[in-house]
Design a protein around this nucleic acid. Structure first.
Length: 728
RNA sequence: GGGCGAUUAGCUCAGUUGGUAGAGCAUCUCAUUGACGUUGAGAGGGUCACAGGUUCAAGUCCUGUAUCGCCCACCA
């Protein structure tokens, strides 16, 4: 008979009742906090949670990410590591502000300018605060064993100090500079965006061939051509060898006669079209670079609202989208249109957030120089000596090439190096209001960079804020107290493990490497295990318009967090995309109940067994113990090589189809009418297998295993801090 | 234009350094007053996308092709 204290096992497993109770018990125990772990936990193991955007709600991708990391973290904790997993959220400057602005426009029909800077920022902060608690609750529901006492937010006071300090140090080192350069301008959001926030969309449009003096040039954007007065030809193009660099000629153009100059530059491709192009340096990155090389004029044609400037003559003030056809009409009347290709396919640059078409502009902005040499004062990265000269680009490359950062999926290294090779100076200033203000003040011609406003009247702070990825890039060490030399920073940095989605490899991962390398001379993490995206059952991305979104909380309500975690982890090779299948989660709910019932059987039949000393076992039972320890070895090896998906599957399979289906079935005979010695042997074995299995399962299914563990007799420790089974 | 990934059972996916093809779900048959509301035993189902190559041996390594998906790029 089962004793009264175990009565709950008479009913099926109820995750809802159990999970919040167990999570509270863990929080109360303090074991999420490395400082409060038992003494045996010595060697630090640090993980930082990729901070979700403070707006929005968690989606199934976050659930996957936290399951993966929690499995690692719990495994390492059981191994006896001093585990710290740092939670946090990201203010996501543009995304958050855009969302709030949208709401305000809808509800109050006001723009941000109606409200003013202070009021808008207040509103955004309020919105973020509300959203924050929702997100943090969702993370708790997944069972994530995060140290909440170290919770950080990219915009909180400590992180703000880190951001300003980082800016100042890079400014003083000459790596942050202000300059007129071509940037991606989002006319709708009225801000710059980085190269990585540009999304290219394929579009069919008309392609025009225009007569330009003696040449024919091609363009998809006739509205930018007003200021074109340079003809660029490849120096080796034999067709045009009679034209010399610097030659000028007169021609009739859109608004009358102009003078054009021949420029010989290798950027012009002999193969494309006539091999002749005109350039618009103010609104094209490649044209800008050509103009820089030859010191040419860079006249602005389009203003920041996407309207034509006075240079357009009669077209002044028109939106470029409206002007195009009219300009072509005029060109046609003048007989300058040679040919129109109606079905030209090209990529249009759009803003990730506002979906507006990007207009390259030359503006004065803040940049991080990635190709400029500086002296690195201190370096622990192999291949980089303290005091040596290096560029940020080289630093990022060496950090991975040297093996200081391990990427278990090798293909992501290639992507990383490829990204570095194509990297340009990083534009970090944004013309929005929500975010870290640039710590620079101006007074007449003077510029001051510092943590606080300079003394004296008349100084005005730069109105821009920083790219949200600037603060995110400091994340592994700003969360540990940097720039202060805290104990946490010394103990827990470089962090051990990081597991972001491949989507943010360039945006985030590489920039953490940059910042950590420059400011600390360290890598931000020793292992970065990049994972794939969770898609729906048919492989489509989750999106609002498709209506295929899945709320992890719904899944937890239906099947329990343990089942969801298993459903996401088992059999999903890390790095590949996952097609989420609800029936799989359902299957693991059944499994949870199986664990529950096995426990009931073992408790009912073996309640008096003394687990403290191993009795003389039957040969059959010895074999079973041996078999189990082989499994432990295998699973431990899988865990150590980041093959969690295999480990989880193996313990699942063993528990159900070996332990329950075979070992327990066969035990029934002995337990019914075996001798006393036989009974003791079997009872001890069943208990031993159950306990070991609970340990092996704990990283994947923490709630149910802890709940059962606490019901077993003589359990002094919570399972969360129990030792991982011996592999001997 | 360059690169990456995928292609294995009806579906969703594993398959580690090469050693006789695996799981879950689904289907079918039988059993079941049982630790199991969510059970067990068993069955059917795969020329591992295709074509070559290396090897005693290839789902796995090499070359090429096809289809799907993704990423990067300043392609007038």
């Amino acid at each position: 008979m089962i004793s009264s204290m175990h009565e709950k096992f008479l009913k099926p497993y109820n995750p809802k009742e159990t999970e919040s109770k167990i999570y509270n018990a863990w929080e109360k125990s303090g074991f999420f906090n490395p400082d409060k772990l038992p003494k045996r936990h010595k060697e630090p193991f640090t993980v930082t949670l990729p901070p979700p955007n403070v707006t929005g709600i968690l989606h199934i991708g976050h659930a996957y990410e936290s399951s993966l990391q929690d499995a690692v973290v719990r495994y390492k904790r059981m191994l006896g590591k001093k585990v710290l997993w740092v939670p946090g959220t990201d203010s996501a400057a543009i995304a958050t502000q855009a969302r709030v602005e949208k709401n305000i426009k809808k509800e109050e029909k006001k723009t941000r300018h109606d409200l003013g800077r202070d009021e808008l920022v207040k509103r955004v902060e309020k919105y973020a605060k509300e959203s924050e608690s929702t997100i943090l609750n969702q993370i708790r529901k997944m069972g994530s064993s995060l140290d909440w006492s170290r919770y950080a937010y990219t915009l909180d006071e400590k992180r703000s100090e880190a951001v300003a300090t980082a800016f100042k140090r890079m400014y003083d080192a000459g790596l942050i500079y202000r300059g007129h350069r071509i940037i991606n301008w989002d006319p709708k959001g009225q801000t710059t965006i980085s190269d990585d926030e540009v999304v290219y969309k394929e579009e069919a449009s008309k392609f025009y061939y225009l007569q330009y003096g003696p040449f024919v040039i091609g363009t998809a954007r006739p509205e930018t051509k007003f200021g074109d007065k340079y003809v660029v030809i490849h120096p080796d193009d034999s067709r045009y060898k009679n034209y010399k660099h610097g030659d000028t000629f007169e021609l009739e153009w859109i608004n009358g006669p102009i003078t054009a100059t021949i420029i010989k530059d290798e950027a012009s491709d002999i193969e494309i079209g006539s091999g002749v192009m005109t350039i618009t340096p103010s609104h094209s990155a490649i044209d800008f670079e050509i103009a820089e090389r030859h010191n040419l004029d860079k006249e602005q044609i389009i203003d920041k609202y996407g309207k034509l400037l006075p240079i357009a003559g009669e077209f002044e003030g028109m939106k470029i989208s409206d002007a195009r056809e009219k300009i072509v009409e005029k060109l046609q009347k003048k007989g300058l249109v040679v040919k129109v290709d109606e079905k030209y396919i090209h990529n249009v640059a759009t803003s990730e957030r506002t979906v507006a078409i990007i207009e390259p502009q030359i503006m004065e902005q803040w940049f991080i120089a990635v190709d400029k040499k500086f002296t690195i004062p201190h370096s622990e990265i192999p291949g980089i000596k303290s005091g040596s000269e290096i560029t940020l680009k080289q630093l990022m490359r060496i950090a991975v090439q040297s093996g200081a950062i391990e990427m278990p999926q090798r293909r992501f290294k290639k992507i990383y190096f490829h990204w570095i090779d194509n990297l340009h100076d990083w534009c970090i200033s944004r013309q929005i209001w929500f975010g870290h203000r640039i710590p620079v003040w101006y007074k007449e011609g003077d510029v001051y960079c510092g943590l606080e406003a300079p003394k004296g009247a008349g100084w005005k702070q730069d109105t821009d804020v920083l790219d949200t990825w600037f603060s995110s890039a400091l994340w592994t060490f700003s969360t540990l107290g940097w720039p202060r030399q805290t104990k946490d920073l010394k103990t827990f940095h470089p962090t051990s493990f990081m597991s972001p989605a491949y989507e943010i490899l360039p945006l985030w991962v590489s920039r953490m490497i940059l910042m950590s390398g420059f400011h600390l001379g360290q890598v931000p993490f020793e292992t970065v295990m990049i994972h794939g995206l969770v898609r729906d059952k048919s492989g489509r991305k989750f999106s609002k318009s498709l209506g295929n979104g899945i709320d992890p909380i719904d899944m937890i309500d239906k099947y329990g967090a343990d089942a969801l975690r298993m459903g996401l982890l088992v059999g999903t090779a890390i790095g590949n995309d996952i097609n989420f299948d609800e029936s799989k989660v359902k299957g693991y709910k059944h499994f949870a109940n199986k664990i529950w019932n096995v426990t009931r059987f073992v408790l009912e039949n073996t309640e008096d067994v003394d687990m403290s000393k191993k009795p003389k076992l039957l040969d059959k039972d010895e074999k079973r113990i041996k078999e189990l320890s082989l499994l432990v070895q295998e699973i431990t090896k899988d865990m150590d090589s980041f093959r969690f998906y295999l480990a989880a599957e193996k313990i699942y399979h063993y528990f159900w189809h070996r332990f329950a289906d075979v070992i327990i079935e066969e035990s029934k005979g002995v337990l019914g009418n075996g001798s006393e010695t036989e009974k003791v042997s079997v009872a001890w074995t069943l208990n031993h297998i159950l306990e070991t299995s609970l340990k092996l399962l704990h990283p994947f299914m923490p709630f149910i295993t802890e709940e059962i563990w606490l019901h077993l007799d003589n359990k002094k420790n919570m399972l969360i801090v129990e030792s991982w089974p011996d592999t001997k």
